[in-house]
């Protein structure tokens, strides 16, 4: 994997919301062809990191690069290369599905000659055929989620950043979406957050576990289980071990970049106030 092109590069990101420190120096790399699961309790800093990577907000310190472009110095170029599905699906309720996707494709710079094909393709892969002519506020939650996903990939971006892409879907839809993400992940980079641990196991090549604004584990499953034998090769146990408030001090895990192990020591209290919406 180390030979593949680095598509996301995050170094020592910190973020303060007023007095509250949401990120305490996060660093990781993601490569082309990887599907990386971004895991952690609510309020750990997953959405904050994603918002910084997608140029929605700025980090307090540290750097983030997407496709080797810095998110602060050339934000427009970064934004042209990513597809983003925020946690709260951003839809214009009064629009027809096709018009919505067409509008987003246009704003994302898909040339008009290719736009119809791009929208049709996104409709097809997200299974939106039956609702393409419907108004968005008539759709069920599952379809709304899929429209949100379709807008994120309509311009076939190099990097897809998905904040809880399968929330609110039924088991059949979840399996369809996973298939879709898996096929995209072959050529592109996918960074997704979820609370469904089983989803990480079947979908992701690698896990980045964050807690209290720091990376507490980063690696593929074999590496993680080898570093934490107490987890007994069980992701749920590993999650509890590393993120529960009474968890023992974790051993410094394998990291993408050479880092100081002391950074991974958990903060004083893990019961940090949640900055994300509390739904899980």
């Amino acid at each position: 994997m180390s030979k593949a092109e680095t598509t996301i590069e995050v170094r020592d990101l910190t973020k303060y919301y007023g007095d509250f420190q949401a990120l305490r120096g996060i660093s990781f790399d993601v490569h082309r062809g990887e599907i990386v699961g971004f895991l952690g309790p609510n309020g750990a800093g997953k959405s904050t990191t994603m918002k910084i990577l997608t140029c929605y907000m700025a980090a307090t310190t540290g750097t983030a690069k997407v496709m080797n472009i810095d998110v602060t110095t050339d934000s427009i170029a970064v934004r042209a290369r990513i597809g983003y599905l925020p946690e709260s699906v951003p839809l214009y309720d009064q629009m027809v599905v096709f018009d919505y996707l067409d509008h987003l494709a246009e704003l994302r710079g898909v040339p008009s000659s290719k736009r119809e094909a791009a929208v049709t393709h996104a409709v097809e892969v997200c299974g939106l055929g039956p609702v393409v002519a419907k108004k968005i506020d008539e759709l069920s939650k599952g379809y709304r989620q899929r429209v949100g996903l379709a807008q994120a990939l309509v311009h076939s971006p190099d990097v897809l950043i998905l904040d809880e892409p399968t929330s609110g879907l039924d088991p059949n839809q979840i399996i369809d979406i996973r298939e879709l993400i898996r096929s995209i992940g072959k050529e592109k980079t996918v960074l997704l957050s979820t609370h469904i641990l089983q989803e990480i196991e079947v979908l992701c090549d690698r896990v980045i576990l964050i807690n209290g604004g720091t990376v507490v584990a980063d690696g593929n499953f074999d590496e993680l289980y080898a570093a934490h034998p107490a987890a007994e090769r069980n992701l749920e146990k590993l999650f509890r071990l590393l993120t529960a408030s009474n968890a023992p001090t974790p051993v410094a895990p394998k990291a993408a970049a050479p880092v100081d192990a002391s950074k991974y020591l958990p903060p004083e209290s893990n019961a940090a106030p949640s900055t994300e919406s509390s739904e899980s």
Partner: peptide, 14 residues
Amino acid sequence: RSKTLELLMTLPVT
């Protein structure tokens, strides 16, 4: 209010 601003702000548009 409808959180679409987050999308608009992350599009390649100033």
